[in-house]
């Protein structure tokens, strides 16, 4: 879906982060509009997770600014909690609590009443095929189900921006597709703006309107045509090229 709202919900300008004399992220500018899904692709250690943490306000940038609906990212938790939701490769759930207890607890922490959280969970659960998972301790659940719970927690806060840090990294293809389909549906239906950090170039091609390549310098690709686009950044993505070639040969 092409962005229809000209006002970006998420803006980053000249965003850099250096730590221990290492440049982790350098000179990133981006605008993200409601309903848009931006892919974030780069090699391991290329700064993708760091960039997501900067966009979420979890890390302070060395230079530059991030705003969400005009609110500086580092003030989000205090003044506009819930506007930005994050999904990490690890689902981030308490293993001794049930799915519902986890979701309730995080919801209450965001100021929702227990009844309100339950209503939102029950509305989201069928689409995410959560079923009995809500009543089981999360330690007993599969990685895919736990990741769906994590997505349910994120969506229950009704965020404006969803930051996905390799959300399907540990999942089988069916679970991965189910989660990404839900993300697409939410972006289309509710105008949720999404940043998807992934190594799955096929998923990025299918899902993202634009891609930001984090290579030696950030490269914006307005139209992402999948892995074939990658020669633009040279040998950095050679493994992807090789995998693609192998797949085509097969």
């Amino acid at each position: 879906m092409a962005p229809s709202d000209p006002v970006p919900v998420l803006q980053a300008r000249d965003l850099s982060r250096r730590a221990r004399r290492r440049v982790l992220v350098e000179g990133v500018d981006l605008d993200l509009h409601p309903g848009e899904i931006l892919g974030l692709i780069g090699p391991n250690g290329g700064g993708k997770s760091t960039l997501l943490h900067l966009l979420a306000g979890l890390l302070r940038p060395t230079t530059g600014t991030v705003t969400v609906d005009g609110v500086p990212a580092d003030r989000l938790a205090r003044t506009a909690a819930g506007k930005v939701a994050l999904i990490t490769p690890e689902p981030g759930l308490y293993p001794l609590l049930t799915g519902r207890e986890n979701l309730r607890w995080f919801g209450e922490l965001h100021g929702l009443s227990r009844a309100e959280v339950d209503t939102r969970i029950d509305a989201l659960a069928p689409a995410l095929h959560l079923g009995d998972a809500l009543d089981q301790r999360t330690a007993q659940l599969s990685s895919g189900t736990r990741q769906k719970l994590s997505l349910c927690r994120a969506l229950a806060m009704r965020p404006r921006v969803l930051l996905l840090d390799e959300p399907t990294a540990n999942l089988d293809p069916v679970s991965a597709r189910a989660i990404l389909a839900q993300v697409r549906a939410r972006a289309d239906d509710t105008g949720l703006a999404v940043v998807l950090c992934t190594h799955d170039l096929v998923a990025a091609e299918a899902l993202c309107e634009r891609v930001l390549l984090l290579a030696t310098r950030p490269v914006h690709l307005e139209r992402f045509d999948g892995p074939r686009h990658l020669p633009a950044v040279g040998a950095l993505f050679a493994p992807y090229q090789q995998a693609l070639a192998d797949r085509e040969r097969a």
């Binding site: 938790a77 205090r78 939701a85 690890e90 308490y94 922490l109 965001h110 927690r153």
Partner: peptide, 13 residues
């Protein structure tokens, strides 16, 4: 270890 720290830091806590 539970991976919950980022979610706590994002919450109004």
């Amino acid at each position: 270890q539970c991976g919950t720290l980022p979610f706590l830091l994002l919450a109004p806590l």
